[in-house]
Design a protein around this nucleic acid. Structure first.
Length: 585
RNA sequence: GCCACCCUGGCUCAAUCGGCAGAGCAGACGCUUCGUAAGCGCCAGGUUUCGGGUUCAAGUCCCGAGGGUGGCUCCA
């Protein structure tokens, strides 16, 4: 599943498969104009400009035709051609013409031909179409894709195909896709009654149901506790601010497309906040600060609103209103590196607690070709980047430098976490900002009695509550560890005569602060177990004649590792241990 | 926003060619009192997302809007 490790011959086979598919498409939909068709992580795709939309049935026909082409064992033949020859060969292929014209002067231009299909292509390819294993190939879906990824250019139709060396590996991949679907936070969010969204309420706006809210509250409490431990103070700020504030901060100039239109209050324009930083700066500037106070760390679970284009919204992962676990650190330049290091350590601690064992670290810097998208001068950007690099070196972490990923006000360390399925998620982000302190004239008084410019660090460790919880739902497949589970145990009386005992036990557990339910419906025990199991409750506590008689519980754990029949006290001890250790099962 | 597809009780889905909107689950009620993943019966639940149109007749065909899904572009 990783692009870094794609074997050269696997990539070659996938690319050849895309050519085979392109031939099939050209036969089935006459007049197809070819875009590009590369190999990707799990297979390949090819983009076409077609006179009609493709349908699901087309995919079937294309697959069948591919099988025939593969059976033909047609050799792939490479030919080198001059630019003029190439233009002539692809006279009726406008997209290929564009590609040819843009090839550098000294580039060797090659075309690959198999059977009746020829494509402009650098190669390499397999020897003949028979080396493409049809049993390892499945066309998956049809999607729109802009020509060359540019939304101002025509939209082509893209066919994605999975391609693996054999049937077994393809099946594994299909199972992976099914597992992804099984864990989908939108499905589980509904089944487990965690959250909803409403057509009438507006897209991209999340309603946290009691169980989802409980998970969030638990995470937030943990977050507050860990931040206080590390010298953070917590603050609250408003949800709207005057337009002038956002002009001063630079958001109006550089972030406007993500902000909601101003609302007018008493003839003055206000904006819904897309970020918390300017508010924290206003608070900082309410008085002078001494170098002795530095660093000051202000955290806020701040709810922000950002306009996101309708097509990008996705469950709780991509929404229009969300709560960031934001914090801003105001510090002296000499403190910056230490602060960055401790933020990185905090971030790693949090990730580890939630069971994210692997992550990739990226250093996000400006797009050097498009500096107009960012505020501030080169010198500050370089200073900021150097500080981040030094912090990464100090923590001994490997990272990748990614151009064009910086925020508009400064470079960042972005941590991408890997979940239980190996998929990457946006995790913590740490940004150095020399610009807003400049714009808001943010100072401290130095040892020399003179004002000095503050350096600001913006950082989140979980990102946003919405995205983080969505990630956790999928990471845990809905089976939250005991400390987070909205219902930690369900007491299951076998018959109605055990209800009193069940409630008595539940009362004791609740008195200790645990989240316990009693299923006293007039149902069979089997049905109650099934329901609790499907709600992914960690512990089911069966209470029948024997248990009621001796003050015990028959404990069933949702993962099948059953502790057996134990006393209520012993179970209490077990729960306390699970919560304290935050154990994941 | 763009391309394609989708929208039928709370949920998951049926409804032949345009011809009386139906089932399972969930819910209410009743029976059952049961030992580790669904006990039985009965009842209720619908302006087929919304607004127009075509037709003797629209869940079904056409137009528009809203919402969603998969991508593209963009992001916590």
């Amino acid at each position: 599943m990783s692009e870094h490790q794609q074997a050269p011959d696997l990539e070659r086979m996938r690319h050849s498969a895309s050519h085979v598919m392109a031939e099939a498409v050209q036969e089935i939909v006459p007049g197809a104009k070819l875009g590009i068709g590369p190999a990707i992580d799990t297979g390949f795709y090819y983009d076409f400009d077609l006179p009609r939309p493709l349908t699901q049935e087309d995919l079937k026909a294309i697959e069948e035709r591919m099988a025939e082409i593969i059976k033909g064992r047609y050799p792939f033949q490479r030919t080198e051609v001059t630019r003029e020859e190439a233009l002539k060969l692809f006279a009726d292929q406008p997209y290929k013409q564009e590609l040819i014209r843009e090839l550098p002067e000294d580039e060797v231009i090659s075309v690959y031909k198999h059977h009746n299909f020829m494509d402009l292509c650098r190669g390499p390819h397999v020897e003949h179409t028979g080396q493409v294993p049809m049993k390892g190939i499945k066309l998956l879906n049809i999607a729109g894709a802009y020509w060359r990824g540019d939304e101002k250019r025509p939209m082509l139709q893209r066919i994605y195909g999975a391609a693996f060396p054999n049937r077994q590996e393809l099946d594994n991949y299909i199972h992976f896709l099914e597992e992804v679907e099984r864990r989908d936070h939108r499905r589980l969010g509904q089944e487990l009654d965690l959250y909803s969204m409403h057509e009438l309420g507006g897209p991209g706006l999340v309603y946290w149901h009691p169980k989802g809210a409980l998970i969030r509250e638990t995470i937030e409490n943990f977050w507050r506790q860990e931040h206080r431990k590390r010298g953070y103070d917590l603050v609250y700020t408003p949800h709207i601010g005057k337009l002038d504030l956002w002009k001063t901060s630079g958001h109006w100039g550089f972030y406007r497309e993500s902000m909601y239109a101003p609302m007018v209050v008493d003839d003055v324009e206000y904006l819904l906040k897309p970020m918390n930083c300017p508010f924290h700066i206003l608070m900082y500037n309410t008085r002078t600060h001494s170098y002795r106070e530095m660093p000051m760390r202000w955290g806020e679970l701040g709810t922000v609103y950002r306009y996101e284009r309708s097509g990008v919204l996705q469950g709780m992962l991509r929404v229009r209103g969300f709560t960031q676990d934001d914090a801003h650190i105001f510090c002296r330049p000499d403190q910056l590196e230490n602060e960055l290091v401790s933020v990185i350590e905090l971030a790693r601690f949090m990730l580890q607690t939630f069971g994210y064992k692997e992550y990739d670290i990226e250093l996000s810097v400006r797009d050097p070709l498009n500096k107009a998208k960012y505020v501030g001068d080169d010198a500050s950007w370089e200073m900021a980047e150097t500080a981040l690099v030094n912090a990464l070196h100090a923590t001994n972490l490997a990272y990748k430098r990614v151009e064009g990923e910086a925020k508009f006000y400064g470079p960042a360390i972005d941590i991408k976490v890997r979940d239980a399925l190996g998929r990457g998620w946006q995790g913590p982000t740490i940004q150095v900002d020399f610009n807003e302190p400049e714009r808001f004239d943010v100072n401290y008084v130095g040892e020399d009695g003179q004002p000095h410019r503050v350096v600001m660090v913006h950082r989140t460790v979980v990102g946003s509550m919405e995205r983080f919880v969505a990630g956790l739902i999928e990471h845990y497949a809905g089976a939250f560890p005991v400390w987070l589970a909205p219902v930690q145990a369900t007491v299951i009386p076998i018959a109605d005569r055990h209800n009193d005992y069940a409630w008595e036990v539940a009362k004791r557990l609740k008195a200790e602060g645990f989240r316990v339910e009693v299923d006293d419906r007039s149902e069979r025990m089997n049905a109650k177990i099934r329901d609790a199991q499907m709600q992914k409750v960690p512990y089911m506590l069966v209470a029948g004649d024997r248990e009621a008689g001796e003050g015990t519980l028959a404990v069933r754990r949702r993962d099948g590792q059953n502790p057996g029949t134990i006393s209520v006290d012993a179970f209490l001890e077990m729960l306390r241990g699970d919560v304290a250790s935050k154990v994941i099962f």
